[in-house]
């Protein structure tokens, strides 16, 4: 089993300030949504790779990407089947369906699906970086700094804290019920769903019991005592972190500017547009990707400060 938990590793990426990483991931996220152009999306995705490699989270990243690729396959297939805006017909069904008409697959629809997948890959890759290199409690603190209410943030952090426990519980209960003759993978779909319930019911009931116990334990440790809480760990933005934070935001500003100037858009339908750029657009795009990649040297620099 691959461990999908945050692990402290002394890499330059881990050394970066959580706010800086948050800003950087937000940049990728927002820009992936703004831009339509497959080259833009591909470059956004690729620009996450140097950090993934440096952060030594390759294994988790790969298995996450494998899962995402399945998702992508589904997206491409479904989009190809339902979208009929394209003009280059690759295949047409010999039958008609009510409401939808004649299913047909067009080149444009497949490309559009692929474009969406690049978007998804870029976003998931960026978020993977965040989850695997920022301590979950730091994410929580960052959310608090952004003035989210403590109790909601705690609820989120508690639910992530109990995910591994839940997985263990599920494995144990599955053993118990299989020993009682339960067959998980036999019968029709309804039968299978029914057998899954034999695991889900005890799992949920156990979790409910657990919730009460956790609440009790928190109460006994002065939770909700009325006064304003203090925080032992602080994710202060220190002077050496400021360049990284700014560097995290620059791509966002630059990207928004590019988008505002009407670039980064791409026409999939009714026929694929040409992929080329004007000189200006190419330069701006190169600048954008460069600014995204500059996070890595800043991490290296930060790491050096830490060591000294």
């Amino acid at each position: 089993m691959i461990n999908f938990r945050y692990r402290l590793k002394g890499t330059p990426v881990h050394a970066l300030n959580p706010f800086a990483k948050l800003a950087w991931v937000a940049s990728i996220f927002v820009l992936s949504l703004l831009f339509n152009h497959p080259v833009y999306l591909l470059l956004l995705f690729l620009s996450t790779l140097p950090l993934v490699i440096t952060a030594q989270i390759w294994r988790q990243w790969v298995s996450l990407m494998k899962f995402t690729l399945y998702l992508c396959l589904a997206i491409i297939i479904i989009n190809a089947l339902v979208s009929s805006h394209g003009t280059h017909l690759l295949w047409q069904a010999p039958f008609q369906l009510p409401l939808v008409g004649t299913p047909a697959i067009t080149l444009e629809a497949i490309f559009f699906g692929a474009g969406m997948c690049l978007r998804l890959l870029a976003i998931i890759s960026a978020f993977a970086l965040l989850t695997f290199t920022v301590h979950p409690d730091d994410i929580m603190l960052a959310m608090l700094k952004m003035k989210l209410p403590y109790k909601s943030v705690l609820a989120i952090s508690l639910s992530t804290r109990f995910i591994p426990t839940l997985i263990e519980d599920a494995a144990r209960i599955s053993d118990v019920q299989r020993s009682r003759g339960l067959e998980l993978d036999r019968g029709r779909l309804t039968q299978r769903l029914k057998s899954r319930m034999a695991i889900i019911i005890p799992l949920l009931s156990n979790s409910l019991d657990r919730t009460v116990q956790v609440a009790e334990a928190m109460e006994a440790r002065a939770f909700g005592s009325g006064q304003k809480r203090s925080f032992y760990k602080e994710i202060a933005l220190k002077k050496p972190d400021i360049p990284a934070l700014i560097m995290g935001l620059i791509p966002l500003l630059l990207g928004i500017f590019i988008w505002w100037r009407g670039m980064g858009d791409y026409q999939y339908y009714p026929a694929l547009a040409r992929l080329g750029f004007t000189g200006l657009e190419g330069t701006l795009l190169a600048l954008l990707i460069l600014s995204l990649c500059l996070m890595l040297p800043l991490g290296l620099a930060r790491k050096r400060i830490e060591v000294d």
């Binding site: 440790r221 002065a222 939770f223 909700g224 005592s225 006064q227 203090s230 032992y232």
Partner: peptide, 11 residues
């Protein structure tokens, strides 16, 4: 730290 934070102890 959790209990101490709840009671707003200084860092």
């Amino acid at each position: 730290a959790f209990g101490l934070e709840n009671l707003a102890f200084p860092r």
